Simulated assay, not measured.
Amino acid sequence: MAFKVCYAYGHEGVLPGIIDEQPACRSCSGVRLNFDCRSCGAEDELYAGARCRACVLGDIVDNLLTNPATGIMATKLIPLAAPLKSLKRANSGMTWIRQKHVTAFLRNLAAAPKINHDTFDELPDSRTREYVRGLLIEHGVRPQRDAYLVRYQAWATQALERVSDPQNLDVIRRYIHWHHQRRMNLMDEVTRGTFLRAK
């Protein structure tokens, strides 16, 4: 079965039949199979419960982003749910979202008291975290932030923890904050080169 253009009629959709050895739609071929999604009505290959993959994916997203304590989705997560539900290839979206680490991340996010950059920073560092953060920024839920400045601040915290001598610690802390970080704070955007040189 293909999802292309009907040889006989030009219908674009599910083509379960064959006419003159070419794929054909239900109307032209007389094949009596149901390919209409029970939820949205779209003609598509049905995935589960007479529903298309896009509708099943939508339910998975709603479930993962609903706070288990309240039973509702936080208002600020609704703009995140929309692009996740409308991924161009719903089957790829389901494969991605059903990975244990992605599922766990979205459940943690749904239960978080606030949806801000600090909340994200407290969650385990991963590509999933940054991908979801990027979606929130792209859709205006969170403001853009200077990624290299944030990375420098995280590096500086760890670097200071490695200094054991109190006198050296004071000097290094001042150098980190008053020389490098103050200069970065005045920049429109911290470049990768500036970040690496400061480290």
Rank of each mutant, 00 (worst) to 15 (best):
M1T: 14
A2K: 13
K4R: 15
V5M: 04
E12I: 15
L15R: 02
G17L: 05
I19L: 01
Q22F: 03
Q22I: 00
P23A: 07
C25Q: 00
S27R: 12
S27T: 13
V31W: 03
R32H: 02
L33M: 07
F35E: 09
S39H: 01
C40G: 05
E43L: 13
A48Y: 12
G49Y: 07
G49P: 03
R53N: 10
R53Y: 14
L57M: 05
L57K: 04
G58N: 02
G58F: 04
D59A: 10
D62K: 10
N63E: 15
N63F: 09
T66G: 11
N67A: 07
P68R: 01
T75E: 13
L77N: 04
P79M: 11
L80E: 05
L80A: 09
A82D: 09
P83I: 00
P83W: 03
P83L: 00
L84Y: 03
K85A: 09
N91P: 13
N91M: 11
S92A: 04
M94W: 01
T95Y: 12
R98Q: 13
Q99G: 06
K100V: 08
V102G: 02
T103G: 01
A104L: 13
F105K: 05
A112F: 07
P113Q: 00
D118E: 15
F120I: 04
D121M: 15
L123K: 04
P124V: 10
S126K: 09
S126T: 10
S126Q: 08
S126H: 08
T128N: 13
V132R: 11
G134L: 06
V141S: 03
Q144D: 08
R145E: 12
R145K: 12
Y148C: 09
L149Q: 05
L149H: 03
R151N: 06
Y152G: 01
Q153N: 08
T157H: 06
Q158E: 09
L160P: 15
E161V: 09
E161W: 08
S164A: 11
D165Q: 02
P166W: 02
P166I: 01
Q167W: 05
L169I: 06
L169Y: 13
D170N: 02
I172F: 12
I172L: 15
R174M: 09
Y175L: 14
Y175N: 12
Y175P: 06
Y175Q: 14
W178K: 15
H180T: 04
M184F: 15
L186P: 10
L186Q: 14
M187H: 06
M187K: 06
D188C: 07
E189S: 11
V190C: 03
V190R: 01
G193T: 13
T194C: 07
F195E: 12
F195P: 05
